[in-house]
Design a protein around this nucleic acid. Structure first.
Lengths: 252, 252
DNA sequence: CGCCGACACTTGTCTGATAACCTGACTTGT
DNA sequence: ACAAGTCAGGTTATCAGACAAGTGTCGGCG
């Protein structure tokens, strides 16, 4: 397995290590149904030859892919692609790979719906249980957002911070973490939604203020309503053309 | 690194491969704060010596741990334990490890709360969007559950199937998958709750019937109410003593 | 026809070596 | 004295070749 020096290593992907590059390569192959559930992956030696890497690299890559639930390794048998029900769809690596492939269109609407489900009720919880420091923090962020209305680049991270602070105010540690994992794809959704909603910032800021007020008033009903209002426009969204355009732009 | 034959390999854990065993070992060490966030893990060679395995095994194990977001590898520097905000708390391997350690007490209540948040609204969604086959399937499962009231061993898997079918009836693919990932810990919660709620099956079955009826009637409000009722008893639950007992029993 | 063992194939593990990289201490020039 | 460059040691990343341990298949044998 002589390594010809100036040959592009795997796919010239921006990636740190060889094994990670190969891993994302395999993940993409599986997501694109180049290998289908139930199929056997090529032999480790095969993959090593094919990508001109050592078997150790292949093994670490396959290990990574298996940790995502995408494949099932057993000694003696080939490693097979698992049923999609086994996939860890919330693993950041998988979400990122999906986003990079533009395979998100089908998942994006569902993801936003999930977000709406959780966040509306979370707002109610936050109104019930927010501590004074929690509320203070929300108000601080809101003030900064007020100042940033007009500049989307400044506003967006504050928007994220606001929602995160709200989730933290529920006292349930899992909620911020769930959203932290979903963040990369939600960012992508935000990109798209920014296009579909040119009014955006002013309206958005009014809604944030309403949410904050409801929580400060300790009114779960009001909080639920305000958050529901804030996220309602995501309900009847059809992304397909927007995503197609973004993907085209990224690849072109 | 001579391998003495009859020495327990790593921890005599039930596990398939050496690297997987070592991986779960490291995961547990991190969860138990034996290595704290920011700390450096021992050298690969060090770990290899310590557990009497080859460096290749160590590397695959560390790769697995890193895929869970627990550690951060960079060439040249030691691999460090990441900040808990980076951890993939919804990865099945992590949840399982937590459950085996009995570190779930703090997470369990929050997990049930998350479940309640999502599932109540999911029931409403299902009432809106369930197809006829969806409803038929729910009714079939319900009938089987009717027959199984009285035998918890038969009932429990049907209970799981019912909730899964309900989530599928929402038409949102992410919902069943989220719960599939949470399953192991929810099972554990079920074990505990079985102890705290001896009335259980008859009441539970009545509630399931109400949920099913509401969905069949296409009434989101009724579905929300029924599911809320069904899960309400999880709200004010304090598991600490129960979990302590279960953990003691398992370790004793 | 069914059981069973030889055999090829594949994953799991071991060993030892080299390359790439980081850190911190040391040197050097101003 | 201080800043910048240099170097050495340690650590991870990768390579190569080998052997061990499972799995499945395909004969032959009862």
């Amino acid at each position: 397995m002589t390594r010809p020096p100036p040959v592009q290593p795997i796919g010239a992907i921006r990636g740190t290590t060889l094994s990670n590059q190969l891993a994302t390569e395999l993940v993409k192959d599986i997501l694109q149904a180049r290998y289908r559930p139930g199929d056997a992956l090529p032999t480790e030696e095969d993959l090593a030859r094919r990508y001109d890497v050592s078997r150790a690299v292949v093994r670490e890559a396959v290990q990574a892919v298996s940790m995502l639930g995408l494949t099932d390794r057993r000694q003696g048998r080939n490693t097979h692609v698992s049923s999609p029900t086994e996939w860890n769809d919330f693993a950041p690596e998988l979400l990122r790979a999906r986003a990079e492939l533009g395979i998100v269109e089908d998942v994006l609407v569902e993801l936003l719906e999930l977000r709406r489900l959780v966040e509306v009720e979370a707002a109610a919880l936050a109104a019930e249980r927010a501590t004074d420091p929690d509320i203070q923090r929300l108000q601080e962020i809101l003030a900064q957002m007020d100042a940033a209305v007009g500049k989307r680049q400044d506003y967006t991270p504050l928007d994220v911070a606001f929602h995160d602070a709200m989730l933290q105010a529920t006292g349930n540690h899992l909620l911020p973490r769930l959203f932290a994992q979903l963040r990369p794809v939600l960012e992508f959704a935000r990109e798209v939604s920014a296009m579909t909603r040119p009014d955006a910032l002013v309206t958005s800021q009014r809604e944030h203020a309403a949410i904050c007020q409801a929580i400060a008033d300790r009114s779960p009903q009001a909080a639920r309503a305000a958050m529901s209002q804030h996220l309602s426009w995501t309900a009847n969204l059809d992304f397909s053309e927007r995503i197609a355009e973004l993907t085209r732009r990224r690849q072109g």
